[in-house]
């Protein structure tokens, strides 16, 4: 027989508990992780999109940057690490370079988040651009060092520009996801 629990003193304040709620909450919280995971998977498939190779780091970096700045609880360092290993396995580049780039972007966003979360969108965009330039330069240096010869520079410039350009789109997607998917548990 179901036991009777008295109604709470202030109804609506306490979150609903129970298995259904916890599953719902868990799925909503893992949306950023799952998004990056599947974006990496889909962009590694042979879609023959122009600039597909450069699009993958662009989308990954922008997404990690945004979630690390605004909701670091849903993009913890360990999740970034797992995603970095996943991206490295799927991308056939020098091992560990993507992983290091993602962790650096995450770290920069995390350390500056009290400032970055309050600034104007355009300033945030600019900051992301600067971070991207630095990280891609590091990637180029590492690739050259690991390949023991100078690697062509232009694809890396293209990667940076693509990341910079796709940032507003991902920002809109982030705001929408945060407002209507992640943070909407009570109205669902």
């Amino acid at each position: 027989m179901k036991t009777f629990t008295p109604p709470p003193i202030r109804p609506g304040i306490h979150p609903r508990s129970g298995l259904g709620y916890r599953i719902d909450h868990g799925v909503r919280s893992s949306v950023p992780f799952l998004f990056v995971f599947f974006a990496t998977l889909v962009l590694s498939a042979p879609l023959n999109l122009p600039g597909q190779v450069e699009l993958m780091p662009a989308i990954i970096m922008a997404t990690i940057f945004l979630w690390s700045v605004f909701v670091p609880a849903l993009m913890p360092s360990l999740a970034v690490f797992v995603l970095g290993i996943w991206a490295d396995i799927l991308s056939f580049g020098p091992a560990g370079v993507m992983l290091l780039m993602m962790l650096i972007v995450h770290g920069v966003a995390l350390s500056g988040r009290y400032t970055l979360a309050r600034v104007n969108f355009f300033v945030l965009w600019l900051v992301f651009g600067v971070v991207m330039v630095g990280v891609t330069a590091l990637q180029w240096v590492l690739c050259c060092a690991l390949a023991l010869h100078i690697v062509e520079f232009l694809p890396f410039v293209f990667e940076t520009v693509l990341a910079f350009g796709s940032f507003p789109v991902l920002y809109v997607g982030f705001v929408w996801t945060y407002r209507f998917v992640v943070n909407n548990a009570d109205r669902a």
């Binding site: 360092s77 396995i89 020098p94 091992a95 560990g96 992983l99 290091l100 962790l103 650096i104």
Partner: peptide, 28 residues
């Protein structure tokens, strides 16, 4: 300490990928 530790591990992965290409290639 988690993030610095993970960055160190990432550097380790880069070195591992250079030292033992076979392992990474098998995984991939």
């Amino acid at each position: 300490l988690v993030l610095p530790a993970l960055i160190l591990v990432a550097c380790g992965v880069i070195l591992l990928g250079k030292a033992d290409r076979g392992l990474i290639e098998k995984l991939r």
